[in-house]
Design a binder for these strands. Sequence first.
DNA 1: AATGAATGAGCCTTCATTCAT
DNA 2: AATGAATGAAGGCTCATTCAT
Lengths: 186, 186, 186, 186
Amino acid sequence: MPRPTRADAHRNRVRLLAAARTRHRAEGRVPGLNELARDVGMGVGTVYRHFPTQRALEEGLAVEPLLRLVAVVRDAAAVGDPGEAFERAVRGSVALQVREVGLGEVVTAQDAVDPDVAAAKAELRSLGRALLEAAQKAEAVRPDVEPADVERLARGVEVAVRLAPERGRAAVLAAYLEVLLAGLRA
Amino acid sequence: MPRPTRADAHRNRVRLLAAARTRHRAEGRVPGLNELARDVGMGVGTVYRHFPTQRALEEGLAVEPLLRLVAVVRDAAAVGDPGEAFERAVRGSVALQVREVGLGEVVTAQDAVDPDVAAAKAELRSLGRALLEAAQKAEAVRPDVEPADVERLARGVEVAVRLAPERGRAAVLAAYLEVLLAGLRA
Amino acid sequence: MPRPTRADAHRNRVRLLAAARTRHRAEGRVPGLNELARDVGMGVGTVYRHFPTQRALEEGLAVEPLLRLVAVVRDAAAVGDPGEAFERAVRGSVALQVREVGLGEVVTAQDAVDPDVAAAKAELRSLGRALLEAAQKAEAVRPDVEPADVERLARGVEVAVRLAPERGRAAVLAAYLEVLLAGLRA
Amino acid sequence: MPRPTRADAHRNRVRLLAAARTRHRAEGRVPGLNELARDVGMGVGTVYRHFPTQRALEEGLAVEPLLRLVAVVRDAAAVGDPGEAFERAVRGSVALQVREVGLGEVVTAQDAVDPDVAAAKAELRSLGRALLEAAQKAEAVRPDVEPADVERLARGVEVAVRLAPERGRAAVLAAYLEVLLAGLRA
DNA sequence: AATGAATGAGCCTTCATTCAT
DNA sequence: AATGAATGAAGGCTCATTCAT
């Protein structure tokens, strides 16, 4: 009788996420749980134990990029100049969102099932709000925008960049960020 | 365009488009052809005769809004001041795209099956290019953006607006357009 | 008002059969009546007027080859030696059946809707019976086979030949006919 | 072969094959997978798990008769006289093919998806070739026929027998086999 | 008589999820 | 806990045939 330990379960979760990430990157869609089970060589039932629903898997996939997003924004917050800090956060966020398929969706989604996701989003919001308010107080950013607006506009830019052909997206990203940031300045 | 010769066939086409539009608005996705048949109470075959594929239906839905979009841009082109004309076109386009679900997608899609759609898109592009170039020549718009960029950014703003709660979208739209146009100015 | 004459109708029938024959040869299956209508550029209704059912079309297609089959057998009957005449008829029939997809099926089918087909089959049977009986009387063919047996065995050989790769079927046909005729000899 | 590990799954497979066999016998065609599901009262998905394609079902149906066919030929091979052995194999094969609808088709098909089917066919071919060569060396069979020819002619006879009315097929089978074997003798 | 729009049964297949083993 | 068989709704599509125009 193989008595599975916590470690086992955790390793399984990691393997599942890795496999799902691979497919996600490759095919642009979160794989079905059956598909994933076949990929990893586990029974469907096992996969469903880890991710009881498609949504759970999607959020599971987003946790790690989301943590990186938090880190990016926190790093930006360390910059002295408020305007500079704000812009750095926006740039970093959009860049990451463009790179990580699905991240933007999770960020702008209303609710989160996964508590890790919910926590990360909460922190993200609080950091974002602080950055924005500081930048506005320093008259670096228009006073009439709210944190939610920045989130949405960032997502919009992400979408715009994604419409460009894969080759040369870096330049496109830079250009569109310029437009966005110019538009946001006081 | 009333391509079908028979009156009843044309009436059916109209009914189908109406039903599809309703669902599209309500659920944000173009209904399946079987679904549509059920909604309207027609045989599946009939629906497939009118729209042989999902794609055909999508474009069928887009024809009319697309024509309105062309009209909006053409009207804008009548304005004397090039910068003003450009801005008016962008405002009108995004507003329409926000109102008409799916329009933005068709506009930014690479190819079109339906010849009416293809023709409208061609005209749209030509008008758009002219407006942009004139505005750039008048130094009203940054010289480094291309027509495709404006298309993508417009779509991005559309997406951003859609993320806002339905109530109060008008204000949001105005605000985000301000950001976009400010960002685009020379 | 175009007042269609008998001649028109006949020409239509001929066009339909020609188109159907082409597809039949090319794809190995009798085309659907809608398909056929599209090919020929007629309305489905018109096609259905000529061939009220799939079956009718199949028989329509068979009429001409069937007449050629009758001719083949009649020519064979002109040969003086009864054994030789019989063998010649069998060879000719199977060869034609191999060449004309669907012919064998019509020959061995029990009933015929089309009166032309029925008439041709009746004549074929009568000719075949005479040839067989003469050959048996001349002790050139085993006495225990009946006309229906020859029909069925001929069809069997047709099927056997068809199983061989298209290239080199002529040799295969000759060889299998040799086996059949040797097996039928007294 | 009972590949499925679970008892109930195996039972389902057996039920499916039984139902499919019944329909196949009765209607001369392998039923569609949905049809089959309806017949047996299972969900479509279950049927598709067992037989992912029409083809898989066809081969699944053929496995058992094919094994019996191998047995028949192997038994024939035990006979001392090579000519006698060959004839016995042919008689047994055609008789079985006439009884088991679809068997002949699988035997003459080029490829096989199911490994069991492929294996059985390989053995069948090797046994058949040996029998034929021995009979030819003993001058009991014409030297110019190849194994593939025997396969095809056997199928042809099967078809010929099937054209006779069900009643009295035994006698017809015997007669046509006589013709075939007489035709194959040196 | 010609036309072609309409019909709808029915096949194929996928997939998220449940549950017996 | 793990497994994978079973489920069945649902969507995609074809096609023989009927019937209004």
